[in-house]
Simulated scan of single mutants.
Amino acid sequence: MPFALILFLLMLLTGVIWLLDRFMLRAKRPAGVNEPWWVEYAKSFFPVILVVFLLRSFLFEPFKIPSGSMIPTLHVGDFILVNRFTYGLRLPIVNKKFIEINQPQRGDVMVFHYPEDPSVDYIKRVVGVPGDKVVYRDKKLWINGVAQEQQRDGDYNYVESELRFVHTERYQENLNGRMHPILLNPDMPLLHLGNVANFPQHEQCSYSEVEVSCVVPTGQYFMMGDNRDNSRDSRYWGFVPDDMIVGKAFFIWMNFGELKRIGLSIE
């Protein structure tokens, strides 16, 4: 069960108990008799749960980075904050937008519900917005026929969770004027064709051993991880619909294994 739904049910339960006590039970309780424990607990927890629910639903939501698909921008173990309102206000639980504010832009680091399993949240970078033609060829991005510049920025080595050493090449990618780091592994193929799913609007994409080409449908987005050869993203499972967007990642507030990362902004 999604955490937001659990929080909502707890808020509803404690709120109902608080209202019942305020307007019915308190008047029937003999003078000098203490409140039942369940009433006392509900009255104590209801305002806390209410504030957490409102903050998490409309302002900021915490998220922990579970994998290395966004290295070097985000590391495994980073605890980040996600801005829930920058792309518009949405109804809790159903995630239906009711106030439009901004649209996701190329280069944004975005959290969303994974299209193949909406109970799971993913984080990737927005590469294509509605109407874009995204081409990934020779491990370089082309957006609407324009090559996105890559500048070599040395090597980058890291160790995966199973203690496997990984050597990659680091680049600075200019995605429509916005610079961000990416990793490319020269020993990995452009794509593992056998892992491409039969996702909705698959006909918008074409695949070969040397190129992936997709036209992004209306109201959907094309996402890629910064660790390009260690990321299962839109190349494999398709597009992210607007109603699956959670928000924009913007701040690292904790990493117990790398304290120096605390306070870093996410670009």
Rank of each mutant, 00 (worst) to 15 (best):
K139E: 12
M179E: 14
D21R: 08
S265P: 14
N195M: 10
V33R: 09
L163Y: 14
Q105E: 08
A27I: 09
F23R: 06
L19I: 06
P66E: 04
P130G: 13
T14H: 02
D155H: 11
C214Q: 04
M1F: 00
V48F: 15
Q150G: 04
I99G: 01
G68C: 08
I101D: 02
D121I: 11
N34A: 15
I123C: 12
V52Y: 07
S69W: 08
F60H: 00
D108S: 11
L13N: 13
I71S: 12
L81D: 09
E173A: 06
R178A: 15
I6R: 14
G128K: 06
Q220F: 12
I6P: 00
V76C: 11
Y156H: 12
V16Q: 04
D21M: 05
N34Q: 14
P118K: 11
I245D: 06
V111E: 03
W253A: 07
L19Y: 06
C214W: 04
L25D: 10
R90K: 15
L91F: 11
N83M: 01
V146K: 14
V39N: 09
L13Y: 01
M244I: 01
T86K: 14
V82L: 13
F165H: 14
G145W: 03
G128D: 08
L12I: 08
V210R: 11
Y87E: 03
G257D: 15
D226G: 05
L141E: 07
K140F: 07
W237R: 08
T14A: 05
I252A: 11
N198E: 11
R170G: 14
S208G: 09
F58T: 03
Y87L: 00
V212K: 03
L55R: 09
K260M: 10
Y207N: 05
L193N: 03
L50P: 05
I101T: 04
E169A: 01
Y122V: 06
I49Q: 10
N83V: 02
V126L: 04
K97H: 02
E40S: 15
R170L: 15
T86D: 02
N227C: 07
K43I: 00
L163M: 12
N144A: 03
F250A: 08
R170N: 14
F58N: 05
P115C: 10
L175E: 12
G219N: 06
Q204K: 14
Y156T: 09
P217L: 06
T73P: 14
W142A: 02
T14K: 09
I262K: 13
I71C: 01
Q151G: 00
V196L: 07
M110T: 03
I80C: 14
V48G: 08
P30Y: 00
T86C: 04
F112Y: 10
F256D: 12
I252Y: 13
D243C: 04
I49M: 09
F3R: 12
T168E: 04
V111R: 07
V210I: 01
L264N: 12
N102G: 05
P2G: 10
V166S: 05
D242E: 15
P66H: 13
F46V: 00
L259R: 12
Y114M: 09
V39S: 11
